[in-house]
Design a protein around this nucleic acid. Structure first.
Length: 486
RNA sequence: GGCCCCUUCGUCUAGGCGGUUAGGACACCAGCCUUUCAAGCUGGCGGCAGGGGUUCGAAUCCCCUAGGGGUCACCA
């Protein structure tokens, strides 16, 4: 009965946010480390904002990240169903128990009434707490009001004195005074449970041992503890992880750029880079190494060592990590995931042949160490795929504006034309000979050739470019570039 | 405003029991390598929010102040 069971319980009101992803990863690491179970539960009690497409997005994002769940959507489990919207009978049952035991009560206060109270409290500069007006309604009165179909909710009869303390695995002991907490709503007038209630009930029923979730839930925790106490169950342990901040130190949101896992994937980040980075904000392995696999993270993970401070999301560091994984990735796999980025720019056809695929692979081999995200690939290597590549402004200004460029290209043309086939050796030798024979610097030869072949001043090694392009195209492009003088 | 959490280089962090020139990484700068750009290597810049205590000795313990964040919904 002491088995470790954790859960990630997103509400499908948006795409999987990197903050949510980190919470999921932390839960997953904890479960894997302790040979426990990682449960995925969909907290969709907000019928207005929950959408099926977001459920799909969250599931896909988690799968893409490699965060697999032992129980949950698509996988079933002992505590099925894992959608709160399908567990309504259970909540109803627990609400009724609470009602019968006098630990909860029906409340018929209207929105207007409450709003008035809030405004008055604001005027007085004191926090608004529900005054408990409906606490002691006679049963007959309740029955009467209900028969008249008056909108009503159920509130928990919360203790007025004492303290509720949360033994948080990350924050330590956090104490809340019960008098600051009012009789909060557990059943909404639309018949659906509130988050606090459904979450507490499910955590208990699903035998969750540790609730690892975002810090913003810390202030909800005493309420859930009260609920669990009122229902007569044992509460799980809690661990609240700090939020992720944007560079301006406010909560990371859409206006800061990419925030969802899907957006990062679309921008050319690798799953292992994103997970590595996300784990790194708030946790560090014992050896302080920053680049690690999830396997290694699992081996050393310790929830108690997760930092208490909110971390600023640093895209530069993510990019560095991503560059590392791009360089390390299996080339075939990298080829597969790179193709869409090329197709996106029309560089390779949507229906790709195996020859074209091989070409992408070859190009990747000589280009990968120059990019930090797959998104940068098209611009870096467009000239490998088309004759219609653009000449970069720098190339025009620094190379093609020069008097001697045309003549030098002509020299190169002649020299290369005499070669049987291009090889690293004979290309090298040719350039060297040209330099010596004509007494011109190597760079005066090399730069124009690079510019002629790629339209750029920087890029993969020239040898590689020439060999991949092949003698025919190389000569064609040099010929064409001779007349490009600006 | 009430309640709660947090505070080590610009950023992410390491710093069980108080004694370190406060360590690493990203970024930035410089150099090396190099037929470009990267990558790689080497070096540099840069920090314990402030103030009081406790102590022979505090980034580490206590208190206060300041700053940041979260939350105060019939949202999760």
């Amino acid at each position: 009965m002491s088995s470790i069971r954790v859960r990630f319980a997103p509400s499908p009101t948006g795409e999987l946010h990197v903050g949510g992803a980190r919470t999921a990863i932390l839960n997953w690491l904890f479960a894997r480390k302790n040979k426990g179970a990682f449960i995925l539960r969909v907290d969709d009690t907000d019928s207005d904002r929950s959408e099926r497409k977001f459920v799909d997005n969250i599931l896909e994002s988690l799968e893409w990240l490699g965060i697999d769940w032992d129980e949950g959507p698509g996988r079933g489990g002992e505590y099925v169903p894992y959608y709160q919207s399908e567990r309504l009978d259970l909540y109803k049952k627990e609400i009724n128990r609470l009602l019968e035991n006098g630990r909860a009560y029906w409340c018929f206060c209207t929105e207007e009434e409450l709003q008035e109270g809030r405004e008055e409290a604001k005027r007085k500069g004191i926090p608004f707490l529900y005054p408990g007006k409906c606490r002691n309604l006679e049963n007959s009165r309740v029955k009467e009001l209900k028969e008249n179909n008056l909108p009503c909710v159920v509130r928990l009869m919360s203790p007025e004195e004492g303290k509720t303390t949360v033994e948080d695995q990350i924050k330590g002991e956090v104490v809340f005074e019960n008098r600051h907490l009012d009789d909060f709503i557990i059943l909404k007038s639309n018949g659906l449970p509130t988050y606090n209630f459904a979450s507490a009930v499910d955590d208990v029923y699903m035998q969750i041992s540790h609730v690892i979730r975002a810090e913003e839930h810390l202030s909800n925790t005493p309420r859930q503890l009260m609920l669990i106490e009122a229902m007569g169950y044992r509460p799980p342990l809690f661990a609240h992880v700090p939020v992720i901040l944007a560079p301006d130190k406010t909560k990371l949101s859409k206006r800061h750029g990419a925030t969802s896992v899907e957006e990062f994937r679309a921008r050319g980040f690798l799953a292992e880079a994103l997970t590595n980075y996300l784990v790194l904000m708030g946790w560090a392995p014992p050896d302080d190494e920053e680049l690690f696999t999830m396997d290694k993270a699992v081996m050393h993970f310790d929830i108690n060592k997760v930092g208490k401070t909110a971390a600023v999301f640093d895209e530069k560091k993510l990019a560095w990590i991503n560059g590392h994984y791009i360089r390390e990735a299996d080339l075939d796999r990298l080829t597969e995931i790179s193709i869409p980025f090329l197709q996106n720019k029309g560089m390779v056809p949507d229906e790709i042949t195996s020859q074209e695929k091989d070409m992408v692979k070859t190009v990747l081999e000589v280009s990968r160490e120059r990019i930090k995200s797959l998104e940068e690939l098209p611009e870096l290597c467009d000239f490998f795929f088309t004759e219609d590549f653009a000449f970069h402004e720098d190339a025009l200004k620094k190379v093609f504006s020069r008097e001697e460029t045309s003549g030098n290209l002509e020299l190169v043309y002649k020299k290369l034309a005499s070669l049987e086939e291009l090889s690293p050796e004979n290309i090298q030798a040719s350039f060297k000979e040209l330099s010596e024979e004509n007494n011109i610097s190597l760079s005066k030869i090399v730069k124009p050739v690079r510019a002629a072949l790629s339209g750029k001043l920087m890029g993969p090694e020239l040898n590689n470019i020439m060999i991949i392009l092949g003698k025919e195209k190389v000569l064609e492009r040099i010929e064409k570039a001779k007349n490009l003088k600006t």
